[in-house]
Design a protein around this nucleic acid. Structure first.
Length: 471
RNA sequence: GGCCCUAUCGUCUAGUGGUAGGACAAUGCCCUCUCACGGCAUAAACAGGGGUUCAAUUCCCCUUGGGGCUACCA
């Protein structure tokens, strides 16, 4: 059997982290099995669907590298096929028109509940004659209901095993508002069959829709795909994440400097685990390792700190040149155009970054020294505050350096000898502050190397001036 | 309320009918002029009750907790 899976979002909001996880598991499954991954836009709800959301979903999936194998299908462009199947169902009396108003239904449900009964459609319009139907339809277009056969539906979920539902509890569900306005359970069944979807991998919130869809498949004589219902991603409050705010939109993650591979790695391990303890995966490794059998059953609480960690790990796995590309949207243009300096800045900053947005503040000193007080140059544990003369000594030492590599091995040795003699903190601290303008920074040796001779000497001279003016 | 799903450290999880392992976060120590990295270490879990069994975290049942669904949304 050809493996064909789909991600079927409804464009009623920006792509969010829960949707990405569903897409990802489908995609990993397809890639692992050598099958096809298909995108289907479920935009049957005309009120809530918006083109900008569809664009957002496609754009972000692309950014994540979750690629689709066929042009995306849009349900709003497939109305003929739904209409045809709806007519078929109507003609064979497996579906019928219902003219009960929402108000009537509401009253009915209230009455049932007050008697302690399960609210369920009474079946009032189930056996209207053709004439009655025609008369009623004059003033009320009605909706189309599916005649639900009382039956215990049993199916085997790839993740949960055998699941059973009694359809008698559902009543006759509405499958379309009109011949050209299908509703989710119906449109989804038609499309999965028409697109020859072999495995339906979706969120657990659809578990209770599955028996309804299976009954529809039976009525339409369509095959039943294999089902896998993924555990939900929950927020810190343990509620379904997608119900929560839009701070979980992918656009936000992107703007906050997360790498696509880090997001994917993090999401893959939320509800899935390899047979060993490996955690940091490249995308090809994920595809190779993925198996639906090892998907978790219980919902997983989303843990932003671990995402930060994955992001830091993935940033480190990038080459300096690759990282420079990712950094582009997060840095001033002057930085990006000064390629050599940028690459050197990346080299010392890479392992200090948890997010791409960290670069600007971590590496800013490479491009310009921020204003700092002269007192910062004095080491807090300085035995004797001779900061000026020590910096002057270092300045003189470096000025003499004419090695091709700065500082030359000879100078570097001399510098460390001096530091060991005078006290490391007494020499290295002021030197480091003079070079970076900051209390926390990479070490002085690294700074000298990335700044180069001219800039280093200039910065130290500036520091000496600063001290002289202040004291 | 009804139906369904589910239950191992704070979080993500491994695991087995017979010492409960890893990761994130936390804490401490080491490295060290600072920050970060790194290294080492500490603390931290089988929801409860019944069975089955020589033995249950593991298998079964119940309870409890959590979640989802219960739309003319998907």
């Amino acid at each position: 059997m050809d493996v064909r899976v789909r991600f079927a979002p409804s464009p009623t909001g920006f792509l969010h982290i829960g949707g990405v996880r569903t897409a990802l598991f489908n995609w990993l499954f397809a890639r692992h099995e050598g099958g096809k991954f298909i995108l289907r836009i479920e935009d049957t709800d005309k009120q809530r669907s918006e083109r900008r959301f569809e664009d957002d979903i496609l754009k972000n999936l692309e950014w994540l590298g979750i690629t689709w194998d066929e042009p995306p299908a849009r349900q709003s462009e497939r109305l003929e096929i739904y209409e045809k199947n709806l007519k078929n169902l109507l003609d064979s009396h497996k579906a019928y028109y219902c003219f009960c108003t929402p108000e009537e239904l509401e009253d009915e449900y209230q009455a049932q509940m007050s008697q302690g009964l399960v609210p369920k459609y009474s079946g009032k319009c189930r056996s209207l004659s053709e004439e009655e139907r025609a008369v009623k339809q004059l003033k009320n277009p009605g909706v189309i209901r599916f005649r639900m056969r009382d039956h215990v539906v049993s199916f085997s979920d790839m993740i949960r095993g055998k699941v059973e539902f009694n359809t008698a509890l559902f009543g006759d569900i509405i499958i379309a508002k009109s011949l050209r306005e299908p509703l989710y359970n119906f449109a989804s069944v038609i499309d999965d069959a028409d697109m020859k979807i072999s495995h339906v991998i979706r969120g657990e919130e659809h578990l209770s829709n599955t028996p309804k869809q299976i009954m529809l498949q039976e009525a339409l004589d369509l095959p039943t795909p294999k089902y896998a219902h993924l555990p939900l991603i929950l927020g810190a409050d343990k509620k379904k994440l997608s119900k929560r705010v839009l701070t979980n939109s992918l656009n936000d993650y992107r703007a906050q400097g997360f790498l696509p591979s880090a997001i994917i790695n993090f999401l893959m391990l939320l509800g899935w685990h390899p047979s060993d303890d490996k955690e940091v995966f490249t995308v090809p490794e994920m595809i190779a390792a993925f198996s639906i059998k090892r998907v978790q059953k219980a919902g997983a609480i989303y843990n932003p700190e671990k995402l930060d960690w994955f992001n830091a790990m993935h940033i480190r796995q990038l080459s300096d040149v690759e990282l420079a590309q990712y950094l582009k949207p997060f840095i001033p243009e002057e930085w990006a155009s000064d390629k050599n300096r940028l690459l050197r800045a990346i080299a010392v900053t890479k392992e200090r970054m948890k997010s791409l947005t960290d670069f600007q503040k971590e590496a800013g000193f490479v491009f310009a020294v921020a204003e700092y007080p002269a007192t910062m140059l004095v080491w807090k544990s300085a035995t004797v505050p001779q900061t000026i003369t020590r910096l002057e000594y270092v300045h003189a030492l470096l000025t003499k350096d004419d090695g091709v590599v700065f500082p030359s091995e000879h100078t570097a040795t001399a510098l460390m000898e001096y530091a060991n003699k005078e006290g490391r903190g007494d020499v290295l601290w002021p030197l480091r502050v003079a070079l970076s303008g900051r209390e926390a920074s990479p070490g002085p040796a690294e700074l000298l190397r990335i700044l180069g001779k001219d800039e280093s000497v200039r910065r130290i001279a500036d520091a000496v001036q600063k001290l002289k003016h202040t004291l």
